[in-house]
């Protein structure tokens, strides 16, 4: 059983929703990433999405765009990101997925990527600009290593596409709560629950909800009907205020703990 499968099984037994924070690797440098990863684990994260920065993040709002730019001011390498995963593996078995855009993965070489990702101890991929239609090569490489590929579903997805994604996805499916880019929003889109119900008619995988989720009350609401809740930009917004300050881990840790508590 994969780490991700295990996670959802054990959370179900505890009647908890998975809390999934996102941070961009290397933002603003790897020393901070190392601290933040530890901080996320220590404060209740159930799974971590580790962002692989890209020069042209088409599906991201301003917060993650800026985070990516900051990260890319340092030399970029996927190997350095995998080193961060290895460091987490020294103290935790938390599932980790790499979240990014197709081109940096593609240039690395998809087969070599899957081998090295597996070897680092990470668990899978979420590639924003890779719909199932373009996933053949990546999926073959990931399957060969037993890694999961998380696919997105959107409010615009048709039944036919939900079916297609259900056939290709593993780990969990990620429902994008809004037609829009990533970024903290003040309120959640209305009536997310019917979407989750619809997705469940196509797939038995756990359903996570992200994009726009920024507050404990959002997390609490989503926990009422989904299996996982993903928060990215809101965490980066807290973190970036404390970059270079001694209270970085305290501030992020407190926010993450508050979000996780809302899933219980």
């Amino acid at each position: 059983m994969s780490r991700i499968e295990n996670l959802f099984k054990s959370l179900k037994e505890k009647n908890e929703t998975a809390f999934i924070p996102y941070i961009t690797a290397g933002d603003p440098d790897f020393a901070v990433t190392e601290q933040l990863l530890k901080c996320l684990v220590d404060n209740g994260a159930d799974l971590i999405e580790l962002g692989v920065p890209f020069s042209d993040p088409m599906a991201d709002g301003p917060t993650i765009q800026v985070a990516s730019q900051r990260a890319l001011e340092n030399p970029f390498s996927i190997d350095a990101i995998l080193d961060q995963v290895r460091k987490v593996r020294e103290y935790s078995d938390i599932p980790i997925i790499l979240f990014g855009y197709y081109n940096p993965f593609y240039q690395y070489g998809l087969e070599k990527l899957a081998q090295n990702v597996k070897q680092s101890g990470a668990d899978g991929f979420l590639i924003v600009d890779m719909p199932p239609e373009e996933a053949g090569e990546m999926k073959a490489a990931a399957d060969a290593q037993g890694l999961d590929i998380i696919f997105l579903l959107a409010p615009t997805s048709t039944d036919r596409r939900m079916q297609l994604i259900a056939e290709n996805a593993s780990g969990f499916v990620y429902f994008v709560s809004v037609t829009g880019v990533t970024g903290a929003r003040d309120s959640l889109a209305e009536s997310l629950e019917p979407y989750v119900e619809r997705i469940r008619t196509f797939s038995n995988l756990p359903v996570g909800i992200g994009f726009g989720v920024s507050k404990p009350e959002h997390v609490r609401e989503i926990s009422g009907y989904a299996d996982a809740v993903i928060v990215g930009s809101a965490i980066i917004k807290v973190a970036e205020k404390h970059f270079g300050k001694p209270d970085l881990q305290d501030a992020v840790g407190a926010f993450v703990r508050e979000l996780k508590d809302a899933t219980r």
């Binding site: 997105l152 615009t156 048709t158 596409r161 037609t179």
Partner: peptide
């Protein structure tokens, strides 16, 4: 090809 996020595929 169509390397775009799911929201745009439809």
């Amino acid at each position: 090809g169509k390397y775009v996020s799911e929201t745009l595929m439809p």
